[in-house]
């Protein structure tokens, strides 16, 4: 697959994931399963933009790793806040 074709395919995929994620968030009852799906989608979309739109998959390793790490940490913290929000609140109460 040429890089041009890859960009076209990814754009379509990212749009579909956005529409599907929004529909899920609007229609499903809030819960851990929905949070997990939304966060996994967030991580996947970020990784695709970093690797292929930014072209970091074939560029500087340090920059690539730091950018990829951002999209491991943020979705993980989102899930952890959902699961352990009370604990975090107690930990950060003066």
């Amino acid at each position: 697959m040429s890089h041009d074709k890859l960009l076209d395919t990814l754009w379509l995929l990212l749009i579909i994931l956005t529409l599907a994620g929004t529909l899920l968030g609007e229609s499903a009852d809030p819960g851990l399963a929905v949070t997990l799906i939304i966060c996994l989608t967030m991580a996947f979309k970020g990784r695709m933009v970093i690797d292929h739109f930014m072209e970091l998959n074939t560029a500087n390793r340090k920059i690539r790793n730091m950018m990829r790490a951002y999209f491991y940490v943020l979705p993980a913290v989102t899930i952890l806040t959902s699961l352990f929000g009370d604990w975090l609140a107690r930990l950060t109460t003066l």
């Binding site: 697959m1 040429s2 074709k5 890859l6 395919t9 292929h52 930014m54 074939t58 560029a59």
Partner: peptide, 19 residues
């Protein structure tokens, strides 16, 4: 799988390259 096996872009592929 399709994405992971895609060709690289026209940019030179190098671990040192900074976009």
């Amino acid at each position: 799988a399709v994405i992971l096996t895609a060709d690289a872009s026209l940019a030179p592929s190098s671990e040192a390259r900074i976009p």
